[in-house]
């Protein structure tokens, strides 16, 4: 499938800011399931640092804007040719050890509820059936946390979302990472785009990857009860949502900001 993306992030500051610095993880890497045909990140008045590829294979770069500035629009445009690999991340160049993705962060801290969820999910699965265990965990998370937009906030933890029984894709991914860790399966947070066929849906999306034996990293999207296929573009990864965020930024010496994100995805057959 050929997917074209137009992703705008607009920042508006109540009073002009002195300086803005952002770290971008906004450029997808080509791998078995996706070939990047063209891709561009731009922002008027901004200076970009040269990109480098980190240990997990993600392209990262810096953007700074010297103020005073009231409004910044970061525009991401590109086209990717995708194929369905049934979630398996193939031929993705990375050097980092999967064991790193067993370490907890605040967002994916284990709770009693998450441990019970894991126990119930894995009750009758043999320990050596790694892929089946991963599927069971993803299914259990999807059953336990209903996808409800706006139900949680950016800092909600996996345990809190489970207790609430509702969440967005970030919460479901966090919960899946947490229960995978509790089962000794390395797991990480993945951001990207999802083509939903024209209706609003969640075009900027997030899911989880679990490191499953010989297969390596396999994507699981508990919010949609599936593994990523040709409708997905994988942007980058991290230990949790904050670590993987496509944009991490600070603004100095100004007033409150309002952010507006719009993502348009089109498929050309």
């Amino acid at each position: 499938m050929r997917l074209s993306v137009r992703h705008t992030t607009l920042y508006e500051f109540a009073a002009p800011v002195r300086f803005v610095a952002q770290s971008h993880r906004l450029t997808p890497a080509s791998s078995g399931g996706q070939t990047v045909l063209d891709w561009q990140v731009s922002a008027e008045g901004a200076v970009f640092g040269s990109a480098f590829v980190d240990g997990a294979g993600d392209a990262v770069s810096t953007m700074t804007v010297q103020g005073p500035v009231e409004r910044i629009a970061v525009l991401v445009e590109g086209t990717v040719e995708t194929t369905d690999t049934t979630g398996v991340l193939r031929d993705h160049r990375e050097t980092i050890s999967p064991r790193v993705y067993l370490r907890p962060t605040r967002a994916i801290e284990l709770s009693r509820g998450l441990l019970e969820l894991r126990d119930a999910a894995l009750a009758r699965v043999a320990a050596d059936r790694a892929l089946e265990r991963a599927h069971r965990l993803a299914g259990a998370v999807a059953d336990a946390i209903a996808y409800v937009p706006g139900a949680t906030h950016a800092h909600t933890t996996a345990g809190e979302a489970l207790e609430q029984g509702e969440g967005v894709c970030q919460d479901l991914a966090h919960a899946l990472i947490a229960v995978a860790h509790a089962s000794g399966i390395p797991a990480r947070y993945v951001t990207g785009y999802l083509f939903t066929g024209g209706d609003a849906g969640e075009a900027a999306h997030a899911w989880a990857e679990l490191n499953v034996g010989d297969l390596g990293w396999v994507g699981f999207d508990p919010a949609n009860r599936c593994c990523p296929d040709a409708r997905y573009i994988r942007l980058g990864s991290g230990r949790d949502a904050r670590d993987a965020a496509p944009i991490r930024g600070v603004a100095r010496g100004g007033a409150a900001e309002a952010m507006d994100v719009s993502v348009l995805i089109d498929a050309q057959q």
């Binding site: 980190d54 240990g55 980092i96 050890s97 064991r99 790193v100 370490r103 230990r239």
Partner: peptide, 12 residues
């Protein structure tokens, strides 16, 4: 790799 002081951001 699971050491708190191991910094994934500087791998490579």
């Amino acid at each position: 790799f699971r050491n708190e002081a191991y910094e994934p951001a500087v791998v490579g």
